Amino acid sequence: MTAKPNPTRLLSVGSIIADVRIDVPILPPRGGDVLGSGASISAGGGFNILAAAARNGLKAAFGGQHGNGPYGERIRAALQSEGIEALMPASRMADSGFCVVLVEPDGERTFVTSPGVEARPGTMALSEIALGPADALFVSGYDLCYPDLGPAIADWIAVLPTSAWVMVDPGPLVTDIPVAIMAAVFARVDVFTLNRREAGLLSQRQDMSAGAAVILRRLRSDALLVIRDGPAGCWLFGGRFGAEGRHVPAPIVRMVDSTGAGDAHTGVFLASLAAGHDFLEAARRANAAAAFAVTRKGPATAPRKEELDAFLAA
């Protein structure tokens, strides 16, 4: 990867929604029903990454839309509690969206998302957001799929200064992102991160190495590809790691809830780069943060820096 200054701020235009989380004994069959327990509502989506970064010393800001109803109020309160600045005013149009998260006993989760105002560009254009030369921009695949917001983000990242970091996580909707928008992402992204399942969907290869090779051909030669592999940790491909890649293991823990584990990984990875760590150490810390997060229930369960340091030491 071309040398860049360490990130000084994480800016996300990724949508923040409310997570309506319900523990279920099993997913209901089509037309069926199950009794859930432990229901809760909290800020989720893009909030998880911003919170993970902020808890680990990286200044963070939110550049997306937030609504004028109860979900928007909850989101703003969560941002304030983490010291994360909201750059856009509350929308007058409608409330923020929400996501129903069904969590099974083994910690696996299933989502149903109802978009709100976060799916559309705000009254302030993305180009009006003041982006510093060493800022890191995070973009989610959910936002790239939205008909209005996706093209606006694609046009914006194409003209960002090369010193700014662009990190993209396509997420579970990886195959739903329009071809032209994905092409714009590949042309500019510095760090492309996704899990093993999503890498298989995107590359149409079951073997990780083969899939990574397919994805690398679409990325710039100096871009970093991060494939998260659950309890096994993650793999780094591209740049000095080449097509053969480098595996970084994760601590062994008992998973309670996997919601937000990938977000914890991404936020701490960027915060670790900001702190001066190299890619391998950033990945090691990110793996530990994701492992720590899955031992707790809820979406924004990334550890704070002192918690992560103690966890790694132990």
Rank of each mutant, 00 (worst) to 15 (best):
R9N: 06
R9Q: 07
R9A: 07
S12Y: 03
S12K: 04
S12G: 06
S12L: 03
G14V: 07
G14L: 05
S15R: 10
S15I: 11
I16H: 14
I16T: 11
A18M: 15
A18D: 04
D19M: 02
R21Y: 01
D23W: 01
V24G: 04
P25S: 06
P28S: 10
P28K: 11
P29E: 08
P29R: 02
P29F: 09
R30K: 14
R30Y: 10
G31D: 06
G31H: 08
G32I: 11
V34D: 04
G38L: 01
G38N: 12
G38S: 02
A39G: 02
S40C: 02
S40K: 00
I41K: 00
A43G: 12
A43F: 14
A43Q: 07
F47I: 02
L50K: 02
A53L: 04
A54P: 05
A54I: 06
A54Q: 12
R55T: 08
R55M: 09
N56I: 09
G57R: 13
K59L: 10
K59H: 11
A60T: 05
F62S: 01
F62G: 11
F62H: 11
Q65E: 13
Q65D: 08
G67C: 05
N68Q: 13
G69K: 12
G69E: 02
P70W: 08
P70L: 09
P70A: 10
P70G: 04
P70V: 10
P70T: 04
P70N: 08
P70K: 05
Y71L: 11
Y71K: 01
Y71W: 15
Y71V: 07
Y71C: 03
G72F: 12
G72C: 05
G72V: 08
I75G: 06
A77V: 11
A77C: 09
L79D: 03
L79R: 08
L79N: 06
L79Q: 07
E82W: 14
E82M: 11
G83N: 15
G83L: 09
G83T: 12
I84C: 03
E85V: 15
L87H: 10
M88L: 15
S91N: 06
M93P: 08
A94I: 15
D95T: 15
D95C: 10
D95S: 04
S96W: 13
G97T: 01
F98C: 07
F98Y: 08
F98K: 04
C99H: 01
L102R: 01
L102M: 14
L102T: 00
V103K: 08
V103W: 09
E104S: 07
